[in-house]
Amino acid sequence: MGMSGSTNDFVTTTLATAIGWARANSMWPMPFGTACCGIEMMAAFMAKYDASRFGSEVMKFSPRQADLLIVSGRISLKMMPVLQRIWEQMPAPKWCISMGACASSGGVFDTYTLIQGIDQFLPVDAYMPGCPPRPEAFFDALMMVQEKAKKGQSKALEYITDDAVSDPAQSVACRTPDNNYVHNVDRSTPSAEKASHDKIADDKITRDGVAPGTSK
């Protein structure tokens, strides 16, 4: 943005840059703190570390008024549908931070009930290592998301296209075709969604020039 070079009280910029700058410096986080990382996230918002230095002190517990989802803590089988519903309710453009080892990969808990990384089911913009990460790491991730916002990038944007909007069943992917939420998904057999998830992985390989099924 051409702030520094301004003479005669003029600021020259493109509209996209101005909007990106405004968005980056007024992130409204939706804190989804479930476990230990939630305490460190609280610490980041409290007196000593103070997230308002980054324009992010407005914690919005309503997803409809937030544009940054901070998933901090373990996500269980029972919680995942709730998390997906919250993500779905957030208006675009939106960003997602996966805070800590448990949200990013399951961490030390490789058990029957814990989701092994929310990025299997949600587009994640920034990952934070640590169990739990320090507040400084939180700010690092926040600044990474700010950089993305300034450039108008978002992982979520890659997942919603015009084609998807024309097909409601595709655009809101955490709904099944009969408009029920994922509580109703039959978990006893591998679901169609899982199969298509695997297919996406195959597609990626094809794009890189290697046929599916062959080792790279």
């Binding site: 373990r74 269980s76 089988l77 029972k78 030390v108 808990f109 058990t111 009930t113």
Partner: peptide, 22 residues
């Protein structure tokens, strides 16, 4: 149950000193 993590099951697979971490 929204944060059920399986501590008790995991405890059966971890040694006594490892469980302190959990």
């Amino acid at each position: 149950g929204y944060l059920h993590t399986g501590f008790e099951k995991l405890g059966e697979y971890r040694s006594y000193n490892q469980f302190i971490t959990l």
